[in-house]
């Protein structure tokens, strides 16, 4: 059973082709990595999955629903942790979660318990009633993760979820996601440009570059196909470049992002 089915999906912004005729499936219950450098089209694809952008061509099914014609069925199915900030800074941590719970119609009793449980999980229970604008980048990220999981989605989209998080928080987060995946069977779709994260965490990987999917399969398969010892090597052979060789601008942006998250 497929949680996501993508057929000949494309997205153009004026003359830029951000996503170029991609097709693949994500199986229910798996952890799927979307691996590619900055500007590859990862965020654009996730936005099309999550009803934020209309595709220029092709079709999508998420949990059996079409984002274009059944947006609310699709929205009920997923949780998302966006790449960029998406909290209300003028509200407290609790209020942000409460707001989300109401939007997703989580009954009040369950909502309160769930919020407490998640705040504990992301170690923010002591900051529950503080305004988000006082939070560090890492704390905001953790709060967003708690929010994305609040309504027990069937699939969770994580757009570069660990970008700039310190190794400890990163491990912690992945442990929890793995746990959710195993215990609750939640499907996980994450984008990343960290090789090692895709290699270690994902059941299957799609490598995207310049809006095109250049390879897809288990890390093992990708290595075998390219006769490489590491995923890094496989990536190099498939795309003709190392993932770090992105435009200088991209690298700068990453650096500043990381700087922000670490504060």
């Amino acid at each position: 059973m497929n949680m996501i089915e993508v057929t000949h999906l494309g997205k153009k912004f004026d003359d830029i082709t951000a996503v170029d005729d991609i097709s693949f499936n994500v199986v229910k219950g798996e952890i799927f990595a979307f691996l590619g450098p900055n500007g590859a089209g990862k965020t654009t694809t996730i936005k099309m999955f999550t009803t934020l952008l209309q595709p220029t061509s092709g079709s999508i099914l998420v949990n059996g629903f079409d984002p274009a014609t059944q947006p609310n069925d699709v929205r009920r199915s997923f949780g998302i942790i966006f790449q960029d900030p998406s909290l209300d800074d003028e509200l407290t941590a609790f209020e942000n979660l409460e707001f989300h719970g109401v939007l997703y119609d989580v009954p009040k009793k369950i909502r309160r318990a769930r919020i407490n449980e998640l705040l504990q999980l992301v170690e923010l229970e002591k900051r529950r009633d503080d305004l988000v604008k006082e939070f560090s980048g890492g704390m905001k990220r953790r709060l967003e993760i708690a929010r994305g999981l609040l309504h027990h989605p069937q699939i969770i989209f994580l757009d570069e979820p660990t970008l700039g998080l310190d190794p400890q928080t990163r491990n912690h987060l992945w442990n929890y996601i793995k746990d959710m995946n195993q215990k609750e069977g939640i499907t996980v779709f994450f984008s990343t440009h960290y090789m090692e994260e895709a290699d270690r965490m994902a059941d299957r990987i799609a490598i995207i570059d310049n809006g095109e999917i250049v390879a897809e399969g288990t890390a093992q398969l990708l290595k075998e196909q390219t006769a490489s010892a590491t995923l890094e090597d496989a990536f190099l052979k498939l795309t003709g470049k190392a993932i770090r060789e992105e435009g200088a601008k991209g690298i700068d942006k990453l650096r500043t992002m990381r700087h922000v998250w670490k504060r």
Partner: peptide
């Protein structure tokens, strides 16, 4: 600009 709009745009309501 501050990103919160996204949170309301993916909510499962019209």
């Amino acid at each position: 600009q501050f990103g919160f709009l996204k949170e309301t745009l993916v909510a499962p309501v019209p």
